[in-house]
Deep mutational scan, measured.
Amino acid sequence: TETYTFDSEDQAEEFAQRAQKKGYTVEKRKENGKFKVRVE
């Protein structure tokens, strides 16, 4: 499980979609103005 942090929602969304296409489970959340994407 890895967590990635992005400054913009667009970046987080793009990353999450790519990860989902590769078959990963993706969980997105906003925390302290940053966008976190957890991938497993």
Results as ranks from 00 to 15, higher is better:
1 T>I: 13
1 T>Y: 14
1 T>L: 10
1 T>M: 11
1 T>E: 10
1 T>A: 14
1 T>D: 11
2 E>S: 14
2 E>L: 14
2 E>M: 15
2 E>A: 14
2 E>G: 14
2 E>Y: 15
3 T>I: 13
3 T>A: 05
3 T>S: 07
3 T>N: 05
3 T>F: 11
4 Y>N: 02
4 Y>P: 01
4 Y>M: 04
4 Y>K: 03
4 Y>I: 04
4 Y>V: 04
5 T>E: 13
5 T>K: 03
5 T>V: 12
5 T>S: 09
5 T>R: 03
6 F>W: 02
6 F>A: 01
6 F>T: 00
6 F>C: 00
6 F>V: 00
6 F>K: 00
6 F>Y: 02
7 D>W: 06
7 D>Y: 06
7 D>C: 11
7 D>T: 08
7 D>G: 05
7 D>Q: 05
7 D>A: 07
7 D>K: 04
7 D>N: 07
8 S>D: 13
8 S>Q: 08
8 S>L: 08
8 S>F: 10
8 S>R: 10
8 S>G: 05
8 S>A: 07
8 S>P: 00
8 S>E: 09
8 S>Y: 10
9 E>A: 08
9 E>F: 08
9 E>G: 04
9 E>T: 03
9 E>D: 08
9 E>V: 05
10 D>I: 11
10 D>V: 10
10 D>H: 09
10 D>W: 12
10 D>R: 09
10 D>K: 10
10 D>E: 14
10 D>Q: 12
11 Q>F: 05
11 Q>L: 12
11 Q>H: 07
11 Q>W: 05
11 Q>Y: 06
12 A>M: 09
12 A>W: 04
12 A>H: 01
12 A>N: 00
12 A>K: 00
12 A>V: 02
12 A>F: 02
12 A>Y: 02
13 E>Q: 07
13 E>L: 08
13 E>H: 06
13 E>S: 07
13 E>P: 00
13 E>A: 07
14 E>I: 09
14 E>F: 07
14 E>Y: 07
14 E>C: 06
15 F>V: 02
15 F>T: 02
15 F>K: 01
16 A>H: 03
16 A>M: 13
16 A>P: 00
16 A>N: 02
16 A>L: 09
16 A>Q: 04
16 A>R: 04
16 A>S: 07
17 Q>G: 06
17 Q>P: 00
17 Q>K: 12
17 Q>L: 12
17 Q>N: 11
17 Q>S: 10
17 Q>M: 11
18 R>M: 13
18 R>F: 11
18 R>Q: 14
18 R>S: 12
18 R>I: 12
18 R>H: 11
19 A>V: 10
19 A>W: 14
19 A>Q: 11
19 A>E: 08
19 A>L: 14
19 A>M: 15
20 Q>V: 13
20 Q>N: 07
20 Q>E: 12
20 Q>H: 09
20 Q>K: 11
21 K>N: 12
21 K>L: 13
21 K>Y: 08
21 K>R: 10
21 K>I: 09
21 K>P: 01
21 K>D: 13
22 K>W: 13
22 K>P: 05
22 K>F: 13
22 K>N: 13
22 K>I: 09
22 K>A: 14
22 K>L: 15
22 K>V: 07
22 K>D: 13
23 G>S: 02
23 G>L: 02
23 G>I: 00
24 Y>G: 04
24 Y>T: 03
24 Y>Q: 05
24 Y>W: 09
25 T>V: 12
25 T>D: 07
25 T>I: 13
25 T>P: 05
25 T>C: 08
25 T>A: 10
25 T>R: 12
26 V>I: 08
26 V>L: 03
26 V>H: 02
26 V>S: 03
26 V>K: 02
26 V>M: 02
27 E>T: 14
27 E>F: 12
27 E>C: 09
27 E>H: 13
27 E>P: 00
28 K>C: 12
28 K>W: 10
28 K>D: 02
28 K>R: 11
28 K>P: 03
28 K>E: 04
28 K>Y: 13
29 R>K: 12
29 R>Q: 10
29 R>Y: 15
29 R>T: 15
30 K>Q: 13
30 K>R: 10
30 K>Y: 15
30 K>S: 10
30 K>A: 11
30 K>M: 13
30 K>L: 12
30 K>I: 12
31 E>C: 07
31 E>T: 04
31 E>H: 06
31 E>M: 05
31 E>I: 07
31 E>Y: 04
31 E>S: 05
32 N>I: 02
33 G>M: 04
33 G>C: 04
33 G>A: 04
33 G>H: 04
33 G>D: 07
33 G>L: 03
34 K>E: 06
34 K>S: 06
34 K>Y: 10
34 K>L: 10
35 F>P: 01
35 F>H: 05
35 F>Q: 01
35 F>D: 01
35 F>G: 00
35 F>M: 03
35 F>I: 08
35 F>E: 00
35 F>Y: 12
36 K>I: 15
36 K>E: 12
36 K>A: 11
36 K>D: 04
36 K>R: 07
36 K>Q: 14
36 K>T: 15
36 K>H: 14
37 V>M: 01
37 V>F: 01
37 V>G: 00
37 V>H: 00
38 R>L: 14
38 R>G: 04
38 R>E: 09
38 R>A: 08
38 R>Q: 11
38 R>Y: 14
39 V>M: 04
39 V>G: 00
39 V>Q: 02
39 V>S: 01
39 V>T: 04
39 V>F: 04
39 V>L: 11
39 V>R: 02
39 V>W: 03
40 E>V: 14
40 E>Q: 13
40 E>G: 11
40 E>F: 15
40 E>Y: 15
40 E>H: 14
40 E>K: 11
40 E>D: 10
